[in-house]
Amino acid sequence: MSSESSWPLLAVRDIRKTFGGLHALDGVTLSVNEGDVLGLIGPNGSGKTTLINTISGLIMPDGGSVAFKGHDLTRKSPDKRVHVGINRTYQVPSPFHKLTVWENMIVAATYGGADDVDIENLLRRAGLHEFKDREAGRLNSSQQKLLDIARALATSPKLMLVDEIAAGLNPKELSWLAEWLLELSSAGIALLVVEHLIPFLQLITTRVVVMDVGSVIFEGDIASATQDDHVIEVFLGRSK
């Protein structure tokens, strides 16, 4: 095997997934390199969350492959993928409801495969330190989203898949969050960010991938995406 750096960090090739008769992913290929911050946009139901689910291992694809640093992960369970350095947040925030914020972090720090995690610090960064003894189910939904991030970070990921984190946050929280994500990026964590809010994406990256009905239809920078006929048609030409 050649040196790890010659491989993209994440290589998704020709992934397919159908639900019943529905082609949720119809041959998706994309890669994320070390240090990348890549946006992923597309209309509702275009398959973004399904793609994240196949990368993180919660869904097994019907075809295609997922590789991380050149190692094939396609059939690996989600926890194994966490251990090699992939983690994610959830579109619907998904804390362990009955556990306290602190216990949520302990689980990830214990089982996530990272050595000496500074939970205190992560919680402080997420603005959740004062709630550390509260049951996670009693946090509000923005706090639960932040806990999702903090919990993922407690496993020391090299790639974070962020699924629609911005929806429902106020402008102040948004810019604060963008800052945090940039900080993670400069700490060496690659990011794949699913987002409907283009202005938010623009705060953290210039590069996007656009999906529609299970396929990638555009890859490039945000500015040219907004000029691309196909992309415009997908976003404007069809009623949601």
């Binding site: 989600p78 251990h83 994610r88 362990f96 409801h97 556990l99 216990e103 689980v107 089982y111 996530g112």
Partner: peptide, 22 residues
């Protein structure tokens, strides 16, 4: 912590998996 991980699975098995729990 094993017991804690069980309760994490109980609360949300997907999240538990992506917290590294088998």
């Amino acid at each position: 912590r094993f017991g804690l991980s069980l309760m994490a699975i109980r609360d949300n098995s997907n999240s538990a998996a992506t917290a590294g729990v088998n």
